[in-house]
Design a protein around this nucleic acid. Structure first.
Lengths: 140, 140
DNA sequence: GTTGGTGCAAATAATTTGCATAGCT
DNA sequence: AGCTATGCAAATTATTTGCACCAAC
């Protein structure tokens, strides 16, 4: 698992607790809350505690391995970062997500905004909400 | 003040407490937390309580008069919605924000994402972070 | 005069910290 | 062995709810 390698390279230990959190997060396409990570992680490593989940998730976020999508309703939970892909579409019905690349349409827009507002744009956050294919079929 | 008119039209009363919250929020270009709104609002209406701030802010959000920008660090606070403008650039240094329109670059991107992921995109959230003109000058 | 809104206190939920112990390397 | 990470309990912070009183319409 390359996530464990990231930990090692960062000088962090690979513990059972971290393995459990990683197993849960690396496999999800629905953003998970700390509580939910605990619930699923405890199945793998029963003594896992909520505090450790918070700490591990913060660590993984620092390492860029997970990120927190947001949307109109607030902050959603934690989701693995796919290489090169940076943005999310969140299903408003089931919470499932997909990721996609920004592309040059976004670069044009950034240039326009920099010009219009005189801000220097360093970062962007783009996220879509809608219905995933499954929920569309179910007529949600 | 047209915000008060919105309240009336929605069948809500225009109270001193709401007037105070409106006065604070309609004048800011920095996203404000409930605590901060209370602090500033209490200068106008001393008996203002935090609970009322929470309730008023939720009401204003329902009416579309304020919104909550998010960014990598989490949820930021409440900010007035400017007519027709929908997105924010948040200064990473001082928190000041500007707003801008999405434009057709975004529509193209949405069409591409809908095609690529098979999601039906209903909503989008786009936000930039960077340095505002003032903080750039100060060499932050 | 009604009814919706307020503000207090208290309940609940979310997150962080202190510390003794367990477990990587 | 040495030192990091863990997990508990408790502290802190953020948010919501119940209720008696007040004020806008």
């Amino acid at each position: 698992m390359e996530w464990e390698q990231c930990l090692t390279e960062a000088g962090c230990r690979v513990t059972q607790a971290r393995r459990a959190v990683i197993a849960v997060l690396s496999a999800t396409d629905v953003p998970l809350s700390p509580q939910e990570i605990l619930r699923q992680g405890a199945a793998i490593h029963p003594s896992l505690g909520l505090v450790t989940v918070y700490r591990t998730v913060a660590l993984l976020e620092d390492l860029g391995l997970v990120q927190r999508p947001h949307h109109s309703e607030g902050c959603h939970g934690y989701l693995p970062t796919l290489p090169g892909h940076r943005h999310h579409v969140v299903c408003t019905h089931c919470g499932r997500t997909a990721q996609f690349l920004g592309g040059e349409g976004l670069d044009d827009l950034i240039a326009r905004v920099e010009h219009g507002t005189r801000y220097r744009v360093d970062h962007h956050m783009l996220q879509f909400e809608g219905l995933c294919p499954t929920c569309q079929e179910r007529g949600a």
